[in-house]
Nucleic acid binder design. Sequence first.
DNA 1: AATTTTTTTTAGATTTATCTAAATTTAAAA
DNA 2: TTTTAAATTTAGATAAATCTAAAAAAAATT
Lengths: 220, 220
Amino acid sequence: MHSFTEENYLKVIFHLYQVQEMPVQTNAIAGKLNTRAASVTDMLKKLADKKLINYIRYQGVTLTEQGKLIAIQIIRRHRLWEVFLVEKLNFGWDEVHDIAEELEHVGYQPLIERLDKFLNYPKRDPHGDLIPDSSGEFEIAVQTGLLELAENINAVIIGVTEHSSPYLKHLEKLGLTIGESLLIEGITSYDGTLELDCSGKKISISRKVAQHILVSTKNQ
Amino acid sequence: MHSFTEENYLKVIFHLYQVQEMPVQTNAIAGKLNTRAASVTDMLKKLADKKLINYIRYQGVTLTEQGKLIAIQIIRRHRLWEVFLVEKLNFGWDEVHDIAEELEHVGYQPLIERLDKFLNYPKRDPHGDLIPDSSGEFEIAVQTGLLELAENINAVIIGVTEHSSPYLKHLEKLGLTIGESLLIEGITSYDGTLELDCSGKKISISRKVAQHILVSTKNQ
DNA sequence: AATTTTTTTTAGATTTATCTAAATTTAAAA
DNA sequence: TTTTAAATTTAGATAAATCTAAAAAAAATT
């Protein structure tokens, strides 16, 4: 089908586009893939030949419909495997990213469909990310960044946008895991530190930590 | 660690050595890997440099202790994933080989140990092959080829040595699956066809089919 | 608008795993 | 034991993905 490497490029382009909503730049891709801009250019030409991306020299890239579909399938696989690793094999949410990064490239459609069924069609992965369905559709997420949440409004943590192990371990130590209820009691004017009430416990977190927490003010 | 390709070479060398108990020949490896003898020679040099095989030009190869350990780990992964696919995801025993062939290369030790635990430390895979433990030890198998079984001796099917989907589907249609009891009632002198009694049902099978069935006369 | 900086691309090499075709070695047959 | 056949290896090429260094284009700054 498509090589391991091609799949990774598509996935990264998808993620970067999600964040920026602008054509994705060569350097950004190189950064994410720990490779050099020159290597990225080579691969972009190849992906463009295969009509998986829209590529104009010096103008950055976007995914074609076909490219987007492939990227979403890989994201689906990644997230389903993460659910498996946490729920069935009892890994911590900070341990599963790298393993899923490998498992996501095992490409055999029925495997993923059966895994999905086995896991009882989960809606989100252990970090709160939405799992697209088999046709590539995402549910619409009603979510807010914690930094955008107004003071004294009840909310529930539904996800994180940073998956590194140190970050996730830190959150866990603070008791800030998915499903927890919280409320911003105040924001320190000097450095913006957030004073939270998390299920009765008082916690202070820096803006850097808060930046990657997603909350919902509905469905509590 | 080791490349996908290197792992496949080691695995194939292990399997071929099991059958022949003699240094494995270049052509045999090429045949199993659908590649050319020249390519195999190239890779053998590389594996020899890494001290994973004992290689003397024109004399075939054997695995070193280190090479054997790696091969067995891959076989362990393969067989555990097969158990997962059949028992948890409800695939048929004829469907799992190729999927496991990919999953076996996801190399992260704790993943396999936890999978093993999740599956409740299975002893054999869905084809009856023994699963080595985490230190690479195989249980001693008390098994006989069906063609070596004497007439009128009760036996139980414990494995097959051929994993192709058409073969396994054929066995399934005949009702010859793992755990089934059988007895050779007679052997046709003309072409060696075996007349079996399998749990009361009378079945005739060719020597070609019988050749890949393993039975045990103990533990019934 | 001209200059500097940043970003991206090209040109040319390198590495890994493969191949074909020819040469070599070993094994089998006459 | 010579000859023939089979198996294996070498030599030289190719394709995928990467790299460095230099050139080119775009963006930012003066």
